[in-house]
């Protein structure tokens, strides 16, 4: 178990920019491509990623006694890329090894299983426990319309949130609350999913109505964009 500040080589008072710079430096040093003979290179890279994630999202790690378990999802026997893409075709995403392939990512704690959960629902929760959120979305989508209760909408919201799809997560959690307005867990999830507006309002000049460059956008707009505009005026 390591302290994230030590892993990145920054002091606890470091600014976000310092953390980002330190991360970039460490990531370049630890890149598995730079150490093809080191079997621990991937693990080191994961540690650097996790340390970065901990410093950027401390709220995710609150309540965890040992944030660095020393064991990665990869070692626990999960596929290398837990962000699942359905196909295993040879035409994967291009240049997979151009960047360091990371075996896991973290997010809010997965939802708890309940006795009354149907088998498909259990499968979806299990996928979320293994951080396979896309798979959870696909499993939940197989449940027929008539069986979609407040809990289904809540679970769908969690699956979307985990995969990063916040608009869909918000939509589903609102549906869950409309069906069951007094469920505390749903309310807490809604609060978590709808934060951020105030910070944005403070940082954004545009949100307040300021206009910087009215009309002209690029000094000289390309002919091709004009063509495009002609094609598509929606």
């Amino acid at each position: 178990m390591h302290d994230p500040y030590t892993v990145l080589g920054v002091s606890p008072g470091a600014t976000q920019e310092e953390i980002k710079r330190a991360y970039r430096k460490k990531a370049k040093e630890c890149h598995p491509d730079m150490h093809p003979d080191d079997p621990l290179a991937t693990q080191k890279m994961n540690e650097v990623n996790e340390a970065y994630d901990m410093l950027m999202h401390p709220e995710k790690y609150r309540g965890q006694s040992s944030p660095f378990s020393g064991q990665t999802a990869h070692e626990q026997g999960q596929p290398f890329h837990t962000y699942t893409w359905s196909g295993d075709s040879p035409f994967e995403q291009p240049d997979m090894d151009m960047f360091w392939g990371m075996p896991f990512f973290t997010t809010a704690a997965p939802p708890q299983m309940e006795m009354s959960d149907a088998p498909l629902v259990r499968d979806a929760i299990r996928s979320m426990e293994q951080q396979r959120y896309h798979e959870a979305v696909d499993i939940l989508a197989r449940i027929p319309q008539e069986a979609r209760n407040a809990r289904w909408h809540y679970l769908m919201a969690c699956a979307h949130e985990g995969s990063g799809n916040i608009p869909s997560a918000r939509f589903e959690i609102d549906q869950a609350i409309a069906m069951d307005p007094h469920h505390l867990v749903y309310r807490q999830a809604q609060e978590r999913m709808s934060g951020a507006s105030r910070t944005y309002r403070q940082r954004s000049t545009g949100a307040g109505g300021q206009i910087v460059s009215p009309g002209r956008i690029l000094g000289s707009l390309c002919l091709s964009s004009l063509l495009f505009r002609w094609f598509c005026c929606c």
Binding site: N49, H81, Y83, T84, W85, Q93, D95, M96, F99, W100, G101, M102, F104, F105, T107, Y133, G162, S163, G164, N165, I166, P167, S168, R170, F171
Partner: peptide
Amino acid sequence: AARTGELLGTIFVWKPDFWAPALMTLGSS
């Protein structure tokens, strides 16, 4: 709106790696 977001989010995710959820959030929002 949520589905339109998902569509753009899917396009923003270049590779299924550590950054995929953050890119999905960026694109979907």
